[in-house]
Amino acid sequence: MSTQEKVKGPASYFPSIEKKYGRPVAEWQQLIADSPLTRHMELVAWLKSEYGLGHGHANALVAHHLAARSK
Protein backbone atom coordinates (compact mmCIF):
# COMPACT_ATOMS: atom_id res chain seq x y z
CA MET A 1 0.00 0.00 0.00
CA SER A 2 1.39 3.40 -0.90
CA THR A 3 1.60 6.22 1.62
CA GLN A 4 -1.12 8.07 -0.26
CA GLU A 5 -3.70 5.29 0.08
CA LYS A 6 -6.12 5.88 2.95
CA VAL A 7 -7.10 3.00 5.20
CA LYS A 8 -10.87 2.66 5.16
CA GLY A 9 -13.45 0.86 7.22
CA PRO A 10 -12.92 -0.41 10.76
CA ALA A 11 -9.13 -0.52 10.34
CA SER A 12 -9.07 3.27 10.03
CA TYR A 13 -9.72 3.39 13.80
CA PHE A 14 -6.81 1.12 14.72
CA PRO A 15 -4.06 3.74 15.21
CA SER A 16 -6.22 5.79 17.55
CA ILE A 17 -7.35 2.67 19.43
CA GLU A 18 -3.75 1.62 20.03
CA LYS A 19 -2.76 5.12 21.10
CA LYS A 20 -5.71 5.71 23.41
CA TYR A 21 -5.88 2.30 25.12
CA GLY A 22 -2.23 1.22 24.98
CA ARG A 23 -2.79 -2.24 23.55
CA PRO A 24 -2.02 -3.45 20.03
CA VAL A 25 -5.00 -4.31 17.83
CA ALA A 26 -3.85 -7.94 17.72
CA GLU A 27 -4.34 -8.13 21.48
CA TRP A 28 -7.87 -6.71 21.21
CA GLN A 29 -8.63 -9.19 18.45
CA GLN A 30 -7.41 -12.07 20.62
CA LEU A 31 -9.57 -10.89 23.55
CA ILE A 32 -12.58 -10.86 21.25
CA ALA A 33 -11.72 -14.31 19.85
CA ASP A 34 -11.35 -15.73 23.37
CA SER A 35 -14.67 -14.30 24.53
CA PRO A 36 -17.60 -16.71 24.79
CA LEU A 37 -19.78 -13.99 23.25
CA THR A 38 -20.51 -14.19 19.52
CA ARG A 39 -23.03 -11.49 18.65
CA HIS A 40 -21.81 -8.12 17.43
CA MET A 41 -23.58 -5.88 19.92
CA GLU A 42 -22.89 -8.23 22.84
CA LEU A 43 -19.18 -7.99 22.07
CA VAL A 44 -19.35 -4.20 21.69
CA ALA A 45 -21.14 -3.84 25.04
CA TRP A 46 -18.60 -6.17 26.67
CA LEU A 47 -15.61 -4.18 25.40
CA LYS A 48 -17.24 -0.97 26.58
CA SER A 49 -18.09 -2.25 30.06
CA GLU A 50 -15.01 -4.40 30.74
CA TYR A 51 -12.30 -2.30 29.09
CA GLY A 52 -13.76 1.21 28.89
CA LEU A 53 -13.66 1.45 25.11
CA GLY A 54 -15.78 4.04 23.39
CA HIS A 55 -18.62 2.79 21.23
CA GLY A 56 -16.95 3.60 17.90
CA HIS A 57 -13.68 1.92 18.86
CA ALA A 58 -15.39 -1.18 20.22
CA ASN A 59 -17.61 -1.37 17.16
CA ALA A 60 -14.63 -1.10 14.80
CA LEU A 61 -12.73 -3.89 16.57
CA VAL A 62 -15.75 -6.21 16.59
CA ALA A 63 -16.70 -5.47 12.97
CA HIS A 64 -13.15 -6.20 11.82
CA HIS A 65 -12.97 -9.40 13.86
CA LEU A 66 -16.31 -10.72 12.65
CA ALA A 67 -15.57 -9.84 9.01
CA ALA A 68 -12.23 -11.65 9.17
CA ARG A 69 -13.83 -14.68 10.80
CA SER A 70 -16.45 -14.99 8.06
CA LYS A 71 -13.88 -15.12 5.23
Score class of each variant (00 low, 15 high):
residue 13 Y to H: 12
residue 45 A to L: 13
residue 5 E to K: 11
residue 23 R to I: 02
residue 58 A to Q: 07
residue 56 G to I: 00
residue 18 E to W: 07
residue 67 A to K: 15
residue 1 M to R: 10
residue 47 L to D: 10
residue 50 E to V: 10
residue 2 S to L: 10
residue 2 S to F: 04
residue 20 K to P: 04
residue 40 H to Q: 13
residue 15 P to M: 00
residue 47 L to A: 08
residue 35 S to G: 07
residue 25 V to H: 05
residue 2 S to K: 09
residue 12 S to D: 12
residue 32 I to D: 05
residue 2 S to M: 13
residue 16 S to E: 11
residue 26 A to D: 13
residue 53 L to Q: 04
residue 60 A to I: 04
residue 64 H to N: 14
residue 71 K to A: 04
residue 66 L to M: 08
residue 32 I to M: 01
residue 42 E to T: 12
residue 11 A to L: 12
residue 70 S to R: 13
residue 31 L to C: 05
residue 50 E to K: 12
residue 65 H to V: 01
residue 25 V to Y: 05
residue 5 E to I: 09
residue 35 S to Q: 02
residue 42 E to S: 11
residue 59 N to Y: 10
residue 35 S to N: 07
residue 4 Q to N: 12
residue 60 A to C: 12
residue 9 G to N: 12
residue 50 E to F: 02
residue 57 H to L: 03
residue 25 V to T: 11
residue 21 Y to N: 06
residue 16 S to N: 15
residue 52 G to K: 01
residue 24 P to T: 00
residue 54 G to F: 02
residue 52 G to V: 03
residue 55 H to R: 06
residue 16 S to M: 14
residue 11 A to N: 06
residue 28 W to N: 04
residue 21 Y to E: 02
residue 38 T to D: 01
residue 65 H to C: 05
residue 27 E to Q: 15
residue 56 G to A: 10
residue 45 A to W: 07
residue 59 N to L: 08
residue 5 E to F: 09
residue 43 L to A: 01
residue 67 A to F: 01
residue 58 A to H: 08
residue 38 T to R: 15
residue 24 P to H: 00
residue 17 I to G: 05
residue 66 L to N: 04
residue 51 Y to F: 15
residue 62 V to L: 05
residue 37 L to S: 01
residue 50 E to R: 15
residue 7 V to L: 12
residue 70 S to N: 08
residue 30 Q to D: 12
residue 42 E to C: 10
residue 12 S to V: 06
residue 20 K to A: 10
residue 61 L to W: 07
residue 35 S to W: 07
residue 11 A to Q: 11
residue 7 V to P: 05
residue 22 G to R: 12
residue 25 V to I: 12
residue 45 A to N: 15
residue 11 A to K: 15
residue 48 K to M: 15
residue 30 Q to P: 00
residue 38 T to M: 05
residue 59 N to E: 04
residue 50 E to Y: 04
residue 46 W to H: 12
residue 8 K to N: 11
residue 15 P to G: 01
residue 63 A to W: 02
residue 3 T to E: 08
residue 38 T to Q: 11
residue 39 R to Y: 08
residue 69 R to K: 14
residue 40 H to W: 12
residue 68 A to S: 11
residue 45 A to F: 08
residue 15 P to D: 05
residue 3 T to G: 13
residue 6 K to F: 11
residue 15 P to K: 00
residue 57 H to E: 06
residue 24 P to G: 04
residue 5 E to A: 15
residue 38 T to E: 14
residue 47 L to Q: 10
residue 14 F to V: 08
residue 33 A to D: 14
residue 71 K to E: 09
residue 17 I to R: 02
residue 20 K to S: 14
residue 62 V to A: 06
residue 19 K to V: 01
residue 27 E to N: 14
residue 28 W to S: 03
residue 12 S to T: 06
residue 20 K to R: 15
residue 6 K to P: 05
residue 30 Q to K: 13
residue 61 L to M: 07
residue 41 M to A: 09
residue 71 K to Q: 07
residue 54 G to T: 13
residue 64 H to C: 01
residue 13 Y to A: 13
residue 3 T to P: 13
residue 46 W to K: 06
residue 63 A to I: 09
residue 57 H to N: 14
residue 42 E to F: 10
residue 66 L to D: 09
residue 57 H to V: 00
residue 54 G to I: 03
residue 47 L to M: 02
